[in-house]
Design a protein around this nucleic acid. Sequence first.
DNA 1: TATGAATGAGACTTCATTCAT
DNA 2: AATGAATGAAGTCTCATTCAT
Lengths: 194, 194, 194, 194
Amino acid sequence: MLDAAVATFARRGYRSASMDEIAEAAGVSKPLVYLYLNSKDELFTACIRREADALTAAIRAAVEPGAPADRQLWSGLLGFFEHTAAHPDGWTLLHTQARTVGEPFAAEVALMRAEIVEFVTAQIAAAARDTDRADPIPAGCEVAALAHALVGAAESLAGWGSGSERSGRENAATLMNFAWSGLANLMRGEHWTP
Amino acid sequence: MLDAAVATFARRGYRSASMDEIAEAAGVSKPLVYLYLNSKDELFTACIRREADALTAAIRAAVEPGAPADRQLWSGLLGFFEHTAAHPDGWTLLHTQARTVGEPFAAEVALMRAEIVEFVTAQIAAAARDTDRADPIPAGCEVAALAHALVGAAESLAGWGSGSERSGRENAATLMNFAWSGLANLMRGEHWTP
Amino acid sequence: MLDAAVATFARRGYRSASMDEIAEAAGVSKPLVYLYLNSKDELFTACIRREADALTAAIRAAVEPGAPADRQLWSGLLGFFEHTAAHPDGWTLLHTQARTVGEPFAAEVALMRAEIVEFVTAQIAAAARDTDRADPIPAGCEVAALAHALVGAAESLAGWGSGSERSGRENAATLMNFAWSGLANLMRGEHWTP
Amino acid sequence: MLDAAVATFARRGYRSASMDEIAEAAGVSKPLVYLYLNSKDELFTACIRREADALTAAIRAAVEPGAPADRQLWSGLLGFFEHTAAHPDGWTLLHTQARTVGEPFAAEVALMRAEIVEFVTAQIAAAARDTDRADPIPAGCEVAALAHALVGAAESLAGWGSGSERSGRENAATLMNFAWSGLANLMRGEHWTP
DNA sequence: TATGAATGAGACTTCATTCAT
DNA sequence: AATGAATGAAGTCTCATTCAT
């Protein structure tokens, strides 16, 4: 029943999706939906919560805990791309729809995103620690900004990949080449300056 | 009048924003809105179109046509970050709201985004041409993917910057260090492999 | 089970009381309610009928059959006030709720009220017969009207008494002083005229 | 428009009366009703308020300010009976329907009723003052109780009169004979005791 | 040109009522 | 005998859209 709701919300948005539509997609009657999930709000929250948990669980399951930072980031990205590709509706719900409805829902998603950014930040910081340089990252270019940029790039590729037939491996490899490699330079002291 | 519509749509979303609200925010009567823009759909389209044009124009105005690729990308990013920071409602409309409503509107935004991706792609390709290597970019890591990743990273930083007080220069510099530098490695033949 | 229904109907009204609520208050499942009493209408009717019968029975049990008219009226009023005070939900159901729903139910209550009015009328008529005057009650001031007035006064005191802590004896005494005494004057030929 | 609402609410009750029904009775569309009176609650409140004001105004207009107490009571009763007979729906709304819906509405009506009881109380008290007896009314039989009884009797006759064709004069005369005359006895020291 | 006034259509939600067990 | 599970029908309210002025 949540499956139908996720699909409908993802395709039509919170406001445009009607409870009639969701109930029909689920193959049940509308009052039944209200019996299990008490209101449209609660239904939407349940959908978000389920998809967010599924995504973070997929990422957590993919990373290899003890591995070096680049290896961890790589496997996390792989998990991310594979899960979003396998659950496009869920991904649309989280990335596109939930942020437009209002505070309580956006906050739910922001929490999940913060968790992912946190993970990426930790890997970058770990890599920075491994360098022998005292101050590996230049001013105005904080780790958090780098992490945000990386996550944004991943989100963009996830959305783009769903159209064409890009594999998760390709997307993850692109990001590692693109970003991680840039980070390495940065930490070696090679900045780009205008 | 479009200003009021953009602000209202950005803050409340397409479905939640009522024509009453928009008319009141514009300080005119509702039938007048219908006189100039015939329906809610057309009004929304007009808003998207105006904001999209403004953003692409700002970017175009910022780049220096004859400059080297990295310089062009840098100035384009600067234009992007400064315009989105100066017009947060417009940016929210394009990035957050327009994609949730449905095909015709999402397509409008996709067109604009394609134009930006195109510009970035061109700069990367130009940089690749300047290299003396025969095949500067490895398979599965097409230029388009790199461009998409870069644009996504920029979008993410734009949204993030609005919360804190990050300047456009900082965001642009972060991206150049992060991404361009990675590209340079790539073109020198240094890949990251799992 | 009827107890729960009476309490719920009295407190919430016919329409607002839901069958769920009643079933829960009775501590049984909803289908069981439908098994014994086939519909909400029938359940309500059964409640009314039971409370009406209980009230008339209480009054009947209170009056002393052979006593003089004033004594009979007094004891009947006492029975009325004591029963309504002891069963406030039942009284609310009959007096306040049943009349608001519509014809079939209001008629049920009207029947009970007619019975009470009838009893009062009989006492007034008996008192009139005891007078030696030929025409003890003036035109336009029929016995039935007097009885209706007396019953209305009693109903009003019953509702009022439930708020404060008035005893049934006080209420009954008030009415006897107020009304019966006026009747006595009337039968002695002393009218009030504008 | 309020006329239609009063009629519908009086006949069907608050819960059973649908906004569709009211709008149709008023000969307008439902949204128009919502435009002027914002919700069912507010509409009901407006109806109650209007009818309550009309009734108290009618009574106030009927009494002759300087007249003796019995004369004032008589004319007040006359005003009451004539107004309720002329506006049976309004009377049903106030007396039967408004009390069953819930606190805010019942309170509105209770206020009006308190005003009427207050008026009656004042007349009885005035009459008591005119007596030369020190303590004209026996214990347990407070003026307030008498007033409540009298008002209840009037309400009962108002409801009864609407069925048959009793005139307001007849009803008022009945009450004066019935009650006022009893009061006179009371004040002369003639009690009824069991 | 500009608007006050009006409405058809559709949304969320509730509830009396019934099966299958 | 008793109930968990399910639904058709109906109700309150909102909103994009249009006239008459």
